[in-house]
Simulated scan of single mutants.
Amino acid sequence: MDDDGLNAARADAESEPASDADHDAESPPESESRSETRETDPDAAGDGPDTDDDAAGDDTDDAASPDNGDDEASSNETMPGVPDPEPEASDVPEDVQKYARFTKMDGAQYDRVNEFLRDRTYITAREWAIARLCSDFRTETGVEMTKIGENLPELVPFMTDTYTPQAVNQARSSFEDKVRTAGATFLYGAMCDFFTAEELDDVMYESTEVAKFLLEVEGVDLSVEEELEAEERISSVMREVRAASEELRERDEE
């Protein structure tokens, strides 16, 4: 993937991806246990308030009270000794309300995000989002999988349904397995003398650019110093891999 392709993807993701009407990307696999929509069927919703009963109730009140106007005025006033009713408390935890990792993805649709990731990585949009949440909501005793699953649509704009703790754990495990598999694949390619040193540098550059882009989308601001430090660590590891590969080949030739 060249720089122009990545820059186009970055501009595309930071715009309003949901404005595109057609998406050719495959839908998330059935194993991801996602419902197609969370919208309530208006036909299945309960009926509205019974206006006839309300009207009957009003008539009864009028008949029982000689002066309905005074009753209405008094009902609008706070009764002595009775506190004002508090607004209904939100069921969303405070740390969930303040979570702002994926704000740049507001308006994005799952299929669009999934298509982008599948073109450049092994992971799905579901695995990407949940892996990040598991990292952010890790505590001393473990990961708050119940909180993540119950509040998934509030935490990640392109996720539209809640998940069970088991589904969250499955996505996290799948992410970890894929990272390990991809790492083994890359290291084998680097050590088997299939790529030249220059080709490996190109692979590392492209991989680093994609990783930095995903971090930017999550809202992570990397300083120049942090980028250089990360690139130096990667280069150091690659030098060790090349040295080990050359040593192994020399042993085989003896």
Rank of each mutant, 00 (worst) to 15 (best):
A13N: 08
A197T: 04
T160N: 08
S245E: 02
E154L: 03
P165S: 14
E14V: 07
C134T: 01
Y122S: 08
A100K: 15
V210F: 14
R233C: 01
N7Q: 15
I234V: 07
R172Y: 08
D50R: 10
E32Y: 07
V220H: 13
H23P: 01
T196E: 06
D177M: 06
E154G: 00
D4G: 13
V224A: 14
R10L: 12
A9M: 04
K98Y: 06
P157S: 06
V179H: 06
E227W: 13
T181S: 15
S75E: 08
E86G: 01
F175A: 07
E226Q: 15
E127Q: 05
R242L: 07
T162G: 07
D52Y: 12
E39T: 03
P165K: 11
A184V: 01
T164S: 15
E209Q: 10
R38P: 00
S235D: 06
R239L: 05
P157R: 01
D52N: 12
S74W: 11
L215I: 02
Q166D: 11
D4N: 11
K147R: 12
Q166C: 04
I123A: 08
L228H: 12
A184G: 08
D91Q: 10
V113Q: 03
D61C: 11
E127I: 01
V156T: 02
E247Q: 09
G48Y: 04
R34G: 00
F194H: 05
A55C: 03
E176D: 09
E26G: 08
T78E: 05
D58P: 00
D84F: 14
E36M: 03
E115P: 02
D136L: 08
Y163T: 01
E218P: 00
E209C: 03
R126I: 02
L117D: 00
L228P: 00
S75Q: 14
A211E: 07
T37H: 09
R138W: 01
G183C: 05
R180M: 03
E247S: 10
G107Y: 08
D54I: 07
T121K: 05
P83M: 15
E154Q: 08
L214G: 00
D53F: 11
K104A: 12
A64R: 14
G57S: 10
S223H: 07
P165D: 14
D3Y: 12
K147M: 14
E199K: 11
E198G: 01
A89K: 03
L117T: 09
R38D: 09
V217A: 05
S236H: 13
D71V: 13
R112V: 02
M204W: 02
L222W: 10
D54L: 13
D119K: 13
N7Y: 06
K147C: 04
D59V: 07
